[in-house]
Design a binder for these strands. Structure first.
Lengths: 134, 134
DNA sequence: TCCATTACTAGTAATAATTCTCAGCAACCA
DNA sequence: TGGTTGCTGAGAATTATTACTAGTAATGGA
C-alpha cells in the first residue's frame, strides 16, 4: 500500500479497521456483515463508509470482491486467487482447502481480453443446508 | 422438459419465446436484455414474466443463471457447465472458445458440500473497453 | 360439455442491495 | 496559517429483483 497509485490516499481509522477485521476472519462476509463487525469497534461508522472502503480496497487489489452466484457480494481478506465453495441455498462461501491449480489461459485463447485473472467457484449445497431438508 | 418434476408445468407462449430467444443468441443477456428481445415478438409481455420464467427455467436446469462479478445476473441458453470470460468494465460475458477441462473435485475434498458443479470465470478487460481508455 | 382447479399472465407495488449527494471535519502542504 | 483534498456520517436516490393482485386460459374429471 505505498506505490504511486495510492498517492494521496489516507489510511483512516475506518479504512484500517475494515481491512483488519476482514483479514481476521475466514468467512467471506457481505458488506453488512462487515458493517456489523466493524461497528463493534467503531460504533458510529456508517454503512456507506463500509461500502466505500470495500470498493476502494478491492479496486486496489488489497481485498477480493467475490461476485458469485448469490445476490449479495462477499469480500475476502486474502487477495490471492484461490478457489471457493459456495452454498447455493444459504449463500455462504468457504475457502477450498485443496491446492487446486488454477487453469492458466494462453494469451492466444484470451479472445482479446487483457489483465485476466481466474475465478473458480464450486457451487453446491453445504452440509448445514443439506441437513435441514433434502 | 417432460419428467415428473415438471408435472403440471405448461409451456406458455411467453415461456417458449423466452427460451427460444435465449437459445438463439451467444451473448449472455441480462433479464432486461431478454425482456427487450422478447418484446419484439410479444410486445405486451411484462418484465415480471421474464424474471419468473428465467427463474423457472434455471431452476429446472434448462438454462444457466450466471451469478458472476457484475451487478446484474446473466443467462445462458446452454446449460452445460463451460468456462466464461467476463469484462470487469462493461460486464459483458463471452463463452471461452477453448476446450478447458473443468477441474473435478474429489468427494473427500468437498468439505461436506453436495451436488457440486464447477463455475470457471476469467475476469479481465475486453478489447472494446481496453481500447476506450487504458 | 360443464365446472372446479391450477398455471400462468400483465401490471404494479414493495424490497433489498448498493451507490450517490452533501455538508462538515481532519490531514497535509505551501 | 490558510487553502486544498480526502474522508466521514447521514440519509436520499437508484437499480435489480421479487411479491402481490386480479384476471385469463389450459386441464381434468363428473
Amino acid at each position: 500500500m505505498s506505490n504511486d497509485e495510492n498517492k494521496g490516499a489516507r489510511l483512516s481509522r475506518q479504512r484500517e479497521t475494515i481491512l483488519d477485521e476482514l483479514r481476521k476472519v475466514k468467512t467471506h462476509p457481505t458488506a453488512d456483515e462487515v458493517y456489523d463487525m466493524v461497528r463493534k469497534i467503531l460504533p458510529r461508522i456508517s454503512l456507506g463508509t463500509v461500502y466505500r472502503n470495500l470498493d476502494f480496497l478491492s479496486g486496489r487489489g488489497v481485498v477480493l470482491r467475490l461476485g458469485g452466484a448469490g445476490t449479495q457480494k462477499r469480500f475476502d481478506g486474502n487477495p490471492a486467487a484461490h478457489p471457493h465453495l459456495r452454498c447455493s441455498v444459504c449463500g455462504r462461501v468457504d475457502d477450498l482447502e485443496w491446492p487446486l491449480a488454477l487453469p492458466e489461459l494462453p494469451v492466444e485463447q484470451s479472445m482479446g481480453y487483457s489483465r485476466l485473472r481466474c475465478d473458480v467457484e464450486f457451487v453446491g449445497v453445504c452440509p448445514m443446508c443439506a441437513g435441514r431438508d433434502s
